[in-house]
Amino acid sequence: MTRQLDITDVAIAYGSAPVVRGLSLSLDKGAIGCLLGPSGCGKTSLLRAIAGFEPVTEGEIRLAGTIVSRPGETLAPEARNVGMVFQDFALFPHLSAFDNIAFGLRRWSAAERRERVGELLDLIGLAGAADAFPHELSGGQQQRVALARAMAPRPRILLLDEPFSNIDTELREQLAGEVRAVLKRDAVTAILVTHDQFEAFAIADIVGVMAEGRLRQWDDPYGLYHRPADRFVADFIGEGAMIAGKVVDRAHVETEIGVISGGLPPSLVSAGTQLSVLLRPDDIIHDESSPEQFPVVARAFRGSQYLYTLRLPSGAEIYCRAHCHHDHEPGEPIGVRLDVRHLTVFAEG
């Protein structure tokens, strides 16, 4: 695998206000990456820096091995050969779908251009809408035309800025899957920005969680969920609760629900260390016969399951999923047992 994107120690600032600091990541050719984080975390600024719309104040950005940004030097966007899909799609209102997609191909021969646009229209399933103007297309169709337009010149990297935020929620995940299929069929290297983790998991091979201008973790979805690098990532991704624990030995932690076994990080192995343990809902199994009984605080119906919130004697709350046949009223104690496959702990405090 060759590296298509390399970002090394990059910082971005608006005036004197830093929005991205000390950020490094890299993406292999053909991979789909995602920058995930709450609004204002700097993810869009990083995307715009890759496109050449923002200069970097520190570090460097390389595309296919060539430096395109470093302090004081920013290769103009039009010279980078990057494709970008904008949040508002930014389709040219005076051009048809065909002409929008062909816009970046003006140095190609007419025949090549027709072939490439036709191929893309087929790929996005809009072969019949070539002559339609943007305002005649639905939001989802506009989105796919914007995608095809950005892909048409075979960019070195495709950048997608919150591409699904203007799409109805119920369609988002489906569209994300479709976009992933289109990108993979054309072997496009892509990086998208979103604040929606389900969208990120549906489309990306590798996801970076950002907060306050820093990259907290750059990992695959499974790793983010089960091996979060810090408390922020643990909180941001999925559901979960933190409870207090004490190290027994290098493979066991004692908590008020029981002893949990699993590997501990080297810095936290000495017996007696106080730490926090991350418990995901799937770490806690509903078991009527278990002697560990805790009262229900709240329950949320999730179709085939209930998500129960239980209160521990210390006052801490944990989550537990149970089959929807197990119907318990708030206040009623229910039995649980631990089934922790990945022990995740953080230093106390």
Binding site: A51, G52, F53, A76, P77, E78, A79, R80, N81, V82, G83, M84, F86, Q87, D88, A90, F92, P93, F103, G104, R106, R149, A150, P153, L159
Partner: peptide
């Protein structure tokens, strides 16, 4: 006002000066 800044950017990223 109808020419949103993203239209400029789209043009730039598609290779226009």
């Amino acid at each position: 006002d109808r020419i949103r800044p993203s239209l400029d950017e789209a043009g730039r990223s598609l290779g226009l000066h």
